Computed example of a mutant assay.
Amino acid sequence: MKTIKISLLLLLFSNLFINAQFDKEEKKYNQVETIKEEYQFLKQSPDNIVVIDNVYGSIDVEGYNGKTIKIEVVKKVAADTKQDVAEGMQEIGVKSARKGDAVYIYMDSPYSKFDLETGNFEHHEFNFGSRRNYKHRKKRTYKYRLDFKVKVPKNVSIDIKAINKGNITVDNVQGKLLIVHNVNGAIDMTNVAGQTDVNALNKDINITYAKNPTKESWFKSLNGDINVLFKGGLDAKISYKTMNGSFYTNFDVERTTPRVTKTKKNSKKGVKYKLYKNRNFKIGSGKVPFHFDQLNGDAIVKK
């Protein structure tokens, strides 16, 4: 296996870390409910996309040959009193919306907000610093999680995001676009295809492609490894950035001239310029740009 070892000195680094863990203590009472729903697109289109947002819990997505989106969500609520469990069961749920080519499926709670116009999902829990957050100043007295199992048409695009206490798996989805982000869980994708944007902040990313991406793609992890199994005949222009990791591959590679980006910044002392330079090389003809961005993990690219 050929090894390209890369070490970069980062001049500036800012780490935004979301810490929203469950309480460690066991709760006396708990309740479980299974939610099952089916959805259809407003219209069938090559641009159809399924968007899923979750906060506490896992998301498992499987592509199949049907046209219907099928979800099964296991909702779990635990608390020290039956009253608090009942409150959690009432407040936490799942909602959906449709617009254009998209179906949106998202966690619903008093702390969540979904904007159909933009498609944005926001979750602000215990944000006491917000002047507009008066009704949520009472601390939540129950724990909860939603574990999603979703079947989608095989050739749709996906945009999936999770935050805490769960991994994301994607199997047999081969649409135009694969967006998968997880903050505190791992990402595992098998038999997939499409332009890719993956980001696992603190865990590993594992991807096995059925077809290599033909458009620019991004692979990011702050503290995890990135393992990607491509098909043979890969034509990729690799840009790799890391502080403490290495890049490994068994493809034949050729170093290329680094791309330098110049950023202009005005200050009291005049105009300053920053130069950002990543290590660059190509596999095959170097046709498709792939960006690997890590801090502490290794990237392993194999065929």
Rank of each mutant, 00 (worst) to 15 (best):
A193R: 01
P153E: 11
K231C: 12
R255E: 15
E254V: 08
Y240Q: 11
E216P: 07
K241Q: 15
D225M: 10
N223K: 12
F251S: 00
I207C: 03
Y144E: 06
A210P: 11
T169Y: 01
L146A: 01
K176A: 06
V253W: 05
I226L: 12
F148I: 06
P213N: 05
R259K: 15
S221D: 06
V156G: 02
T249F: 11
L201F: 09
V180A: 10
K151S: 15
A200Y: 01
Q174P: 09
K264T: 12
V253M: 04
F230N: 06
Q195C: 06
G185L: 00
P153W: 08
K215N: 12
D252Q: 03
T257E: 14
G224Q: 08
K241P: 00
F251G: 02
T190I: 12
D225P: 10
G166R: 00
A200P: 11
G166Y: 00
N167A: 04
V173H: 00
Y240D: 11
V260N: 12
P258W: 12
T263D: 11
I179Q: 11
I160K: 00
K161Q: 14
N184F: 01
V260T: 14
D147R: 02
D197A: 08
K211N: 15
L229A: 12
T257F: 09
T208M: 05
K231Y: 02
Y209K: 05
L177E: 08
V180S: 10
I160M: 04
L201Y: 08
N227W: 02
L229N: 12
A210M: 10
S239C: 10
I205S: 09
K262R: 13
G232R: 14
I226V: 15
V170D: 02
T169H: 01
K203M: 11
P213T: 04
G224A: 06
K149M: 07
P153V: 07
G233N: 07
T169M: 02
A210N: 11
T169Q: 02
V150W: 09
R145N: 13
N227I: 08
V170E: 01
L178Y: 01
D252R: 04
N206A: 14
K211I: 11
R259G: 15
P153I: 07
A186Y: 00
N206I: 08
Y209L: 08
K151I: 00
N212W: 06
L229M: 11
T214D: 12
G233E: 03
N191K: 15
G194R: 01
T242H: 10
D225R: 08
F247M: 09
F219S: 05
K215H: 10
V183D: 09
A236W: 00
I160G: 06
P153D: 10
V150C: 07
K220T: 14
S239W: 03
V173M: 03
K151C: 04
T249Q: 02
T169D: 05
E254C: 02
V150H: 07
R255D: 13
A162T: 01
T141E: 14
Y144H: 07
A193N: 06
L177C: 01
V173K: 00
K264M: 09
L234A: 08
S217D: 10
N172D: 15
T214F: 08
